[in-house]
């Protein structure tokens, strides 16, 4: 008879637990990207920039709310900004936030070799990019949707909000729709520009150039050279805000022109869709060519 024997530690062993698959992997990438960008779980200095930028993005809403609290019901409707304008007031801050978020989300993985590691999991390039896209959208929503939602809630508390539940839901729906479209546009543009380089700093400048630089060129073409004002639908700073204005049934500054008809709404949406498509194509093409090993 042999003596009883037992091996307590075999060293490496196969993982026998539950395999949660691609969705869980995507969720994991999404969550870790959000954590990384916002500095969650990192030292305090990593949180300073996103916190400051978010604060500045909320300043206009906070200022309007403070005004409403001080004056209360006496604040006439004319003095209250339309909700869509709150997408435009902090737009430069939104761009600044994008110069941080997209390079941090995308470039770091390629530089540190994490991208290759991710592709050794159930993730593929499309699912990886989808998770990154969702993460960037989620983070950008803080500075895009946050200020407008704050204003809606603040005005509602001050009895200055939309009249009746139906109208309130209608405004909320328009805010959410505008936010999703603007955030999607910004995410496509900033991720596309960031995919072109392996240096975060250059990616940040690239994002700035893709938004502010192109905006300036469009401005020059229309204002200085005198090309048709409809060209403003290609202004990455103005077009998203104009789109939000149209969702609220109004015409914004990028859709107006002295002495001529407002730009058609379909054209505004087409302009935003065109840029989104272009930058998504850049992103996908770049990653398709990227070798994982």
């Amino acid at each position: 008879m042999t003596a009883p024997a037992e091996i307590f530690d075999r060293g490496y062993r196969r993982y026998e637990g539950e395999r949660t698959g691609v969705w869980q992997a995507m969720r994991s990438v999404l969550w870790h990207t959000i954590r990384s960008v916002l500095g969650i779980g990192r030292k305090g200095r990593h949180k300073v920039f996103p916190a400051l930028v978010a604060l500045v993005a909320f300043l206009p809403s906070i200022a309007f709310l403070a005004f409403a609290v001080l004056i209360g019901d006496m604040l006439s409707e004319e003095l209250r900004p339309p909700y869509w304008e709150l997408f435009g007031l902090p737009i430069l801050v939104v761009v600044l936030f994008a110069t941080l978020v997209a390079p941090e989300a995308l470039v770091r993985d390629r530089r540190d070799g994490m991208f290759r590691l991710y592709l050794s999991t159930p993730l593929t390039k499309p699912t990886y990019l989808l998770a990154k896209f969702a993460a960037v959208m989620a983070v950008m929503a803080i500075v895009v949707a946050g200020p407008v939602l704050l204003l809606l809630v603040g005005y509602t508390v001050q009895n200055l909000g939309p009249d009746g539940f139906g109208a309130w839901i209608g405004v909320l729906g328009r805010i959410l729709l505008s936010s999703v479209l603007i955030v999607g546009f910004m995410a496509a543009l900033s991720l596309g520009a960031s995919s072109l380089t392996d240096r975060r700093a250059i990616a940040s400048v690239g994002v700035l150039g893709a938004v502010v630089g192109v905006s300036i060129v469009v401005g020059i073409c229309v204002d200085a050279i005198g090309l048709r004002h409809e060209l403003r639908v290609l202004d990455p700073l103005g077009a998203p805000v104009e789109m939000a204005a149209r969702i609220f049934g109004e015409v914004g500054p990028a859709g107006e022109s002295r002495g001529s008809a407002a730009t058609p709404t379909w054209l505004v949406f087409a302009g935003v869709a065109a840029w989104t498509t272009v930058w998504l194509s850049v992103l996908v093409t770049r990653y398709r060519r990227l070798t994982a090993v």
Binding site: V53, L92, V95, L96, T99, L100, A201
Partner: peptide
């Protein structure tokens, strides 16, 4: 001073000086 000077520099240019 900092690890990511471009975004802080852009913040200075766009937000501090620009706004």
């Amino acid at each position: 001073m900092i690890r990511n000077p471009i975004i802080w520099g852009l913040a200075y240019v766009l937000v501090w000086e620009g706004i």
